[in-house]
Simulated scan of single mutants.
Amino acid sequence: MKTRQRDRGAPEPQAPWNEVRPQLWQGGHFWTGPDGEVQTAVVGTEFDLVISLFTRPGHGPHPGVDHLISEIPDGPLTAEQLHSVQQLAVTAAEAVRNDRTVLVRCHSGYNRSGLVAAQTLIELGQDPATAIALIRQSRSPWALNNQTFEQYLRTGLDVAYLLAGLETPS
């Protein structure tokens, strides 16, 4: 399964991960270091829970860290994938409420992680526009450059889930 849409013109982020709000971080597997070279972001024990929407061997987290994996594409999602995003966001919000540090990550930390992190903010009481703005302010202006994901958030994942469930395979 192809999970990442290539090159929307977005540069690699300038940090492996960024704090979106206390206890909630958004990041990726790759970032550009101060020397301009692409670096790998390897998670150790910095976080209590890591949610990976893209994975690569050797990128962590440490075996003792809770790690949830749900590889989803950086494109239109099925009803099942939208349901997974909802469940991950509920889990992340619960962890944040319990004062646990959470990292939501994907390849570069822009779209898939942005979708789950923004939905986590919504679960924590933010409205969609504020959640989207906070993701872009905290991670990068390039975060949530996937307009489909932004629409899912603005419409509401419950509605997006129902609409995606109506699609019939051809």
Results as ranks from 00 to 15, higher is better:
Arg6Tyr: 05
Arg105Ser: 08
Thr168His: 13
Thr101His: 01
His62Leu: 07
Pro61Asn: 13
Gln147Asp: 06
Pro22Met: 12
Glu19Pro: 02
Pro11Phe: 12
Gly28Asn: 03
Leu115Val: 14
Gln39Thr: 05
Gln126Trp: 14
Gln14Val: 13
Leu115Arg: 12
Leu103His: 05
Asn145Tyr: 00
Asp99Met: 01
Val85Cys: 14
Thr45Ala: 15
Pro16Glu: 00
Glu46Gln: 14
Thr3Val: 04
Pro128Ala: 06
Ser52Cys: 04
Leu103Asp: 11
Tyr110Gly: 11
Ala118Ile: 12
Leu166His: 06
Gly156Lys: 07
Tyr110Val: 01
Pro169Gln: 13
His62Asn: 11
Val65Asp: 04
Asn145Phe: 09
Gln119Leu: 03
Asp127Val: 12
Asn98Lys: 00
Pro57Cys: 06
Ile72Ser: 06
Glu46Pro: 04
Ala117Gly: 14
Pro34Lys: 08
Asp7Lys: 09
Thr40Gly: 09
Glu150Leu: 01
Val102Tyr: 11
Phe30Cys: 07
Thr101Asp: 04
Val50Gln: 10
Pro34Val: 10
Val96Thr: 01
Ile122Val: 15
Val38Leu: 08
Glu80Met: 07
Ile72Ala: 02
Glu94Pro: 03
Leu121Tyr: 13
Trp142Leu: 04
Ile72Tyr: 03
Pro13Glu: 12
His29Trp: 06
Thr45Gly: 10
Cys106Lys: 06
Ser52Ile: 03
Val104Leu: 09
Gln5Thr: 11
Glu94Met: 15
Val50Phe: 11
Gln126Leu: 15
Thr101Phe: 02
Gln119Pro: 08
Ser52Gln: 03
Glu37Ala: 13
Met1Phe: 11
Asn18Ala: 15
Gly36Leu: 03
His62Arg: 02
His67Lys: 05
Leu134Asp: 14
Gly27Ala: 05
Gly156Trp: 15
His62Trp: 06
Thr130Gly: 15
Gln81Phe: 00
Val116Thr: 03
Leu53Thr: 06
Ala143Met: 05
Pro63Tyr: 01
Glu46Val: 02
Leu115Tyr: 02
Met1Tyr: 13
Glu19Trp: 08
His29Tyr: 04
Ala129His: 09
Asp74Cys: 02
Gln26Trp: 01
Leu68Ala: 05
Asn111His: 08
Gln26Leu: 14
Lys2Glu: 03
Tyr110Leu: 08
Ser140Glu: 05
Gly109Asn: 01
Cys106Asp: 03
Leu88Gln: 07
Ser138Thr: 13
Pro128Trp: 07
Asp99Val: 01
Ala15Phe: 13
Ile135Asn: 13
Gln39Glu: 13
His59Ser: 10
Val104Phe: 05
Leu88Tyr: 06
Gln151Thr: 08
Gly114Phe: 11
Gly60Arg: 03
Thr130His: 04
Pro73His: 00
Gly33Tyr: 01
Gly27Asp: 03
Gly58His: 01
Ile72Arg: 07
Gln119Glu: 15
Thr40Asn: 01
Ala15Gly: 12
Val116Tyr: 10
Glu71His: 01
Asp66Arg: 15
Gly165Ser: 11
Val159Gly: 00
Arg154Ala: 14
Ser113Phe: 12
Glu19Tyr: 02
Val42Lys: 09
Tyr161Lys: 08
Gly75Met: 11
Gly125Glu: 08
Trp31Pro: 00
Ser70Asp: 05
Leu153Val: 01
Ala160Gln: 12
Ala131Thr: 13
Arg100Tyr: 02
Leu77Ala: 08
Thr32Trp: 04
